[in-house]
């Protein structure tokens, strides 16, 4: 089976610590893989390796069959990335931000098309021409989603995207992810949010000290079971 996103014995060492200990992972089209773990568990390192921002110490990351380390520019064609806090450019409007990032990905959209992507992502129509400096975090995250959607990326890499969002914005964000998943986008989401993982995830992985210690289909667990499993791995007393 051809995986959109794959890691084979992916390892990252820094001078004084091992950030990722031989990760093996396969994610297919339309799948939402949620990676839970504490700060410093290796979630962001994994995303940075898939993005090609850091080089693996050993092993390899693959996007759409291409090894990331040796095809850094090429693999960017297939992926989109949304960080924890999408800041964008505060002096540009939402539409200008989207136009900029889309043009960098090779898409030259009309104003109507840009508007369509932004509204589809949940941004109010009257906000698209306002400067992003005045947006809430939720609104910025929606522009981030619009950037990803407008790129027609096969893989979406999310680094704690719902952190700091209010419940309504978080819920809207989840709906957007489910829509993208239904359209065939593979989503890899690093998060602390157990409830949101259970809600949107196809599979849920738990990472501890650079090691993927467990992977469960989301359908096999309810929210409480998932929380207990997670806390067990984190060695926190119930």
């Amino acid at each position: 089976m051809e995986y959109i996103l794959e890691a084979k014995q992916l390892r990252k060492e820094y001078q004084d610590k091992v950030a990722l200990k031989g990760l093996d992972l396969q994610i297919s089209a339309g799948e939402i893989f949620c990676l839970l773990g504490q700060n410093g568990a290796g979630k962001s390192t994994t995303i940075n390796l898939f993005l090609g921002f850091i080089q693996p110490s050993s092993g390899a990351a693959y996007i759409n069959g291409y090894e990331v380390a040796s095809n850094v520019t090429q693999v960017k064609e297939y992926l989109a990335y949304i960080p924890e806090n999408v800041m964008l450019y505060p002096n540009l409007t939402g539409m200008e931000n989207l136009a900029l990032f889309s043009s960098l990905a090779g898409f030259d959209y009309s104003k109507e098309e840009l508007m369509h992507y932004l509204v589809q992502a949940g941004l109010p129509a009257d906000a698209v021409s306002r400067r992003v400096g005045g947006y809430s975090k939720g609104m910025r995250q929606k522009v981030g989603i619009a950037i990803a959607v407008a790129k027609h990326a096969k893989v979406l890499l999310l680094d704690e995207p719902t952190s700091g969002l209010d419940p309504k914005a978080s819920n809207e964000f989840s709906e957007l992810l489910l829509n993208l998943s239904q359209q065939g986008t593979a989503i890899f989401m690093a998060t602390h949010d157990i409830f949101r993982s259970k809600e949107v995830g196809t599979r849920i992985g738990i990472m501890r000290e650079g090691e993927l210690v467990d992977v469960q289909p989301a359908a096999n667990l309810n929210a409480n079971e998932l929380e207990n499993l997670y806390l067990n791995y984190m060695h926190v007393a119930r």
């Binding site: 993005l51 921002f53 520019t73 960017k76 949304i82 964008l88 960098l104 090779g106 890499l157």
Partner: peptide, 9 residues
Amino acid sequence: TLKILLSQG
């Protein structure tokens, strides 16, 4: 934003 920029290729 640098990461988002670079992720665009």
